[in-house]
Write a protein that binds this DNA or RNA. Structure first.
Lengths: 336, 336
DNA sequence: ATAATATACTAAATCGATTTAGAATACTGA
DNA sequence: TCAGTATTCTAAATCGATTTAGTATATTAT
């Protein structure tokens, strides 16, 4: 590897001068800077990240914490989209990404210790169990953090617009004429709770009565569970005309069950998903769903985190809500 | 952060002694080791990765290179499964993961330079354009690398058993009675070429004539493209009784097209996918497909790479083929 | 002409670990 | 008893960068 000493020798100056020239210090003559920069470029010099991190206490490395208990992880398209955009934005701004975990090899450490071990300048926390004491400890530390879809006090959070998204979906099917709307929601988390509350509130605002048997819980991301709840809804004396699913993937279970019972979508039953994953748009009919702004969320998370790292003096915690987009598919028709 | 100096002071020994005690050097008294270890644990000491990397030239950090031109990336379940298992195995063995890219911030560097910049001990190359000069340069460098689904000369490669997988699928539908089998393959890459060759070879071995119009190319991972090719196949005077799709996701396009034309799967048309993604097993009927051993591939890649890093003297390049599993769904019936 | 100030550079310390060479002490054998 | 050897520890160098304090030279002001 080419080091700063090599450049110094080649240019006939001291290592200090090279460092300053490359970092734009004001006390180096312009032509010297030019000469050193050129030489560095020619020799293919790049600073050694470890040496820099050691001396400066800055690693230009962001930690990413993905660790939900369910283990779906990056296999879930929503999270992989978020991750890809965190990565792209971080790289654009000169940062690398390292995954933060617990228990590295024989070392037992929690998330905070791992973060310090790698001198990460900050951490994006996503898809985590935010009540895990190790996650809380990280969120309460002096390390800059940005959370996704969850708010830690006095920290920046990037939020998907679950409330508005659900409201839009409800209003959409309402305008199509639906009044008997069922909602199969996922296990209650801070995210699904918001969606459920928004569902109820919007229905109330529209003057729709939602009988309690229309509100059902299914396992998140589990088509089988949604199929069961769909069956239960179909057995009701007063069937709904439209069913909301916890997420697009779970919808597949409902779709199968409806087909099994010979009910056509949307002629005999309207359906709505959530997430806007790729799959939902290649089904026939296309699923009407709400596509979360995952790309914007990831990019914003990286941007805000780096902003806090680089300008801690002017930084203020923010809650940024990222809008999604209602994807009008073909699974909602006027109730017959 | 607790440093080695803090431990040294607390224990009344030199920094050298602490370092040796923690790293199991033979010249420290057993009870001193004990005392230091205990103290380190109590004070929550963890070595600083940057300092270690700088001094030892070893970072305990693996690079991961995911960068195909199509941009599907981790959004593809196959790759996210591979990645998750690389990560899990690396962590089990004490290594972190960093993504390797080009052009970090204002720095322009290629993959090799990035790898050196972060002092990565080795790199797993997956889902990449293996003809990209920057990838080739990395593969030909002195950095340990392991490739997935591609072989660099004198390097370790982990391969999905595309040939055997395809053979199993062909034999499976053959035994179900199919003799008119069509294959929609993806764009020709080293992977799809193997599948295609294996398809042809197995058909030949079984004495099946495959008319050229049964072999069609579609875009990989693109249901629309597969739908078009399905339509073309259905318009043939001598329709096939079974259609092989490039991958499970593309199959959705074929499924839609078949349904649109009122053809029931599998009664009127049998179908086969490839990959065994989660989705394929929640469709009704379940898709008959070949699930690649992504988890084993990722784990093996990490293991082999670390083996090469830690024991370069006894290391030899290997080509390891990981078997998958034929998932018998309900999309193949005896031809009517 | 001399002091004061800018300008352009360098020497050396530093970050936190590892490692080499060597020192101090205890132990062994003749 | 004393050289030779083992045992257990330490001082100091080192990795590659940044940064502080300071030096040498040129420039300006009085």
């Amino acid at each position: 590897m080419v080091t700063i000493t090599d450049i110094a020798k080649a240019c006939g100056v001291s290592r200090a001068t090279v460092s300053k020239a490359l970092n734009g210090a004001p006390d180096i003559k312009a032509e010297t800077v030019e000469r050193i920069r050129e030489c560095a470029k020619e020799m293919g010099y790049h600073p050694n990240a470890a040496a820099r991190a050691l001396k400066m206490g800055r690693s230009y490395n962001l930690g990413v914490l993905f660790s939900e208990p369910t283990g779906v992880g990056l296999t879930h398209e929503y999270f992989s989209r978020i991750f890809e955009s965190i990565k792209a934005e971080a790289e654009r701004l000169g940062y690398d990404i390292t995954f933060i975990s617990q228990n590295l090899g024989t070392m037992t450490m929690d998330y905070l210790e791992h973060t310090r071990y790698r001198s990460c300048d900050g951490v994006v926390i996503a898809s985590a169990d935010f009540h895990d004491p190790a996650v809380v400890r990280l969120g309460e530390s002096d390390i800059p953090t940005v959370t996704l879809d969850y708010i830690f006090d006095s920290r920046t959070a990037i939020l998907s617009d679950n409330i508005q998204g659900m409201e839009k979906l409800v209003r959409y099917v309402y305008e199509k004429g639906h009044r008997r709307i069922a909602f199969i929601h996922g296990e209650l988390t801070s995210v699904t709770q918001k969606r459920l509350a928004s569902f109820k509130k919007t229905c109330a605002a529209l003057g729709i009565q939602v009988p309690p048997e229309y509100i059902r819980e299914a396992a998140y991301h589990d088509p089988r569970s949604s199929a069961l709840q769909t069956r239960a809804l179909l057995e009701l004396p007063n069937r709904p005309t439209c069913i909301f699913y916890p997420d697009d993937f779970s919808y597949i279970g409902g779709m199968n069950e409806l087909e099994r019972q010979g009910l056509q979508i949307p002629r005999q039953m309207s359906t709505v998903g959530y997430d806007g994953i790729h799959l939902s748009q290649v089904l026939r009919p296309k699923l009407t769903t709400y596509k979360q702004g995952a790309e914007r969320m990831g990019a914003e998370a990286a941007k805000q985190l780096i902003e806090e790292i680089e300008h801690p003096d002017t930084w203020l915690p923010q809650q940024i809500t990222v809008e999604g987009l209602l994807l009008e598919g073909g699974t909602v028709a006027e109730p017959g």
